[in-house]
Design a protein around this nucleic acid. Structure first.
Lengths: 105, 105
DNA sequence: CGTGTAAGGAATTCTGACACG
DNA sequence: CGTGTAAGGAATTCTGACACG
């Protein structure tokens, strides 16, 4: 694809760009949320798209979602082009910053 | 600026992307042709723009230009927005792949 | 479940220098 | 001038595991 998809960034730099710890970044890979490439030596390489995805993951985690839930959301996004509900849910989520907001409060 | 200007690529990856040796990349920095950033630890970081610039430098070097000449060209490009001659010269250069082409031949 | 950390090792990068030309 | 290379060291990253919760 474009430059945004070229896997050229090391984990240390990704950590700085996202604010996530290296431990967290590796864990999200273990949970199948991101898929970095590797150099011959085994060093992980990420793209700018990965960085964006990680920032999104970070937001969802803060909102209380679990890694497997976030993984499901990604799968949905790929198969279901028309995700009205999810989108709206996501917007509300971003606005209120909480997973289950008590609207009646 | 944009993502193309974010200094996030390590020298090893730049070497793969450009086909240049690490030695060459460091040398072009020494000659003031490129200006990577550094991590706290001293590791060099390059942008996609740097990668493009390096590929251009590689072409010019192949055409027989010397590093200081290439540096001058860059300076011109920055100060003189209307570089008709240089541009044309560059095009011819790219077309024929030689510094001094003998048109009479 | 998600993340911090110490452990030991391997891969990556750095600088200054010598070599060739 | 431009680039390869061996040298010694420092910074970066890797994996598997233990800890806490």
């Amino acid at each position: 694809m474009s430059l945004k998809d070229r896997k050229v960034i090391n984990i240390g730099t990704v950590s700085e760009l996202t604010g996530l710890s290296i431990r967290q970044i590796r864990y999200y890979e273990e949970r199948q949320l991101i898929f970095p490439e590797r150099t011959k030596g085994g060093t992980r390489k990420y793209s700018f798209s990965d960085v964006e995805k990680l920032m999104d993951i970070a937001n969802k985690m803060e909102d209380g979602w679990q890694s497997h839930e976030i993984r499901k959301m990604e799968e949905k996004k790929l198969k279901d082009p028309k995700l009205r509900h999810k989108m709206i849910e996501g917007q509300l989520n971003a606005a209120f910053g909480m997973k289950n907001y008590n609207y009646s409060k």
